[in-house]
Design a binder for these strands. Structure first.
Lengths: 160, 160
DNA sequence: GAAATAGTCAAGTATACTTGACCAACATTC
DNA sequence: GAATGTTGGTCAAGTATACTTGACTATTTC
């Protein structure tokens, strides 16, 4: 505990270099900012990170608000607010659930300037930039590793 | 633009699978939450993501508040608030800059239960868990790729 | 009909910032 | 070496975000 400064420095630097959590957070922060800025600029939509956090949980067939909220881990009220904003932006739509009169289904708008595909196309621009700088194989490796990581993170019992 | 549903579905799924930005953000969110929760639990410190965003920019020799703020991209007042909280938690300390009577240097507390090393040790626990599930080579590959990615993100003219 | 469920409305809280005003210590200039 | 401008930091107040809790209505399920 009372190690000399040089030893502390060495250990600190080693830990810092090794810390994947920090690395991941920094990379995500930067990619995140870049992507959102580009989407806002190109599509003219005030999209924020809290909105994009919903995206992976919105199914093609439509997802009910309560389900969405549960999957994301927030209250239905919070989810409702974000969905309301996305609806106003023209990114998603709410339509009545044919199987349940109380419920509504939230799904992506398929066409038009603010459709998901437009958004994803913009994101691909970011990724193309990165790929140009990282190289194709590095990029593929990173992508694969992230997929594995996500599987592990979302399913604690995952064995690759 | 007016493609049939199946085509939309196929394209959407393909884009979604390919979207590294989304992947990165999701992974980071999960790792982030897990890490912070563990640190709070083990060290009893109400550390938040905004605090950890400062860490990579605090040098061993100490960093001045203004520099820290500029590097992170926030105002000195905002940085001051976060540093104040970290100081209260016993994670960093402010000491007068010997070369400038106005300035103070912010540096990590080296010893004690809330020192960086303790925090990084806790983070290593998370990483060890992940490594156990991902495998050593996947983990190393991911780590290397993230380092490359960070270099690219922080320096636009980087060529690997 | 009673109880649970899907969603909305309203209000409140914590966070992560910002702008503006200010003081003390430097740095420059005449 | 006094006047002036600049820089480092703090105090205070305000704003936008990302939520939360609580109360309520319309359905559905039992």
């Amino acid at each position: 505990m009372s190690s000399p400064p040089e030893q502390f420095a060495a250990r600190f630097e080693a830990e810092k270099r090794a810390s994947m959590a920090q690395l991941l957070m920094r990379c995500a922060r930067l990619v995140n900012e870049r992507g959102l800025a580009l989407v806002r600029e190109h599509l003219g939509v005030p999209l924020r990170a809290s909105h994009t956090a919903l995206f992976p949980h919105i199914d093609l067939e439509g997802t009910r608000l309560t389900d969405l909220a549960r999957r994301v881990g927030i209250t239905k009220q919070a989810a409702g607010q974000l969905v309301g904003e996305l609806e106003q932006m023209g990114v998603v739509e709410r339509s009545p659930d044919p199987e349940d009169g109380r419920a509504k289904r939230i799904r992506f708008i398929r066409e038009g300037p603010r459709s998901v595909l437009q958004g994803l196309a913009v994101l691909r621009e970011v990724e193309a930039q990165l790929e140009a700088q990282l190289g194709k194989s590095r990029m593929r490796s990173l992508h694969g590793s992230l997929l594995e990581l996500l599987a592990v993170l979302e399913n604690p019992d995952h064995a690759p």
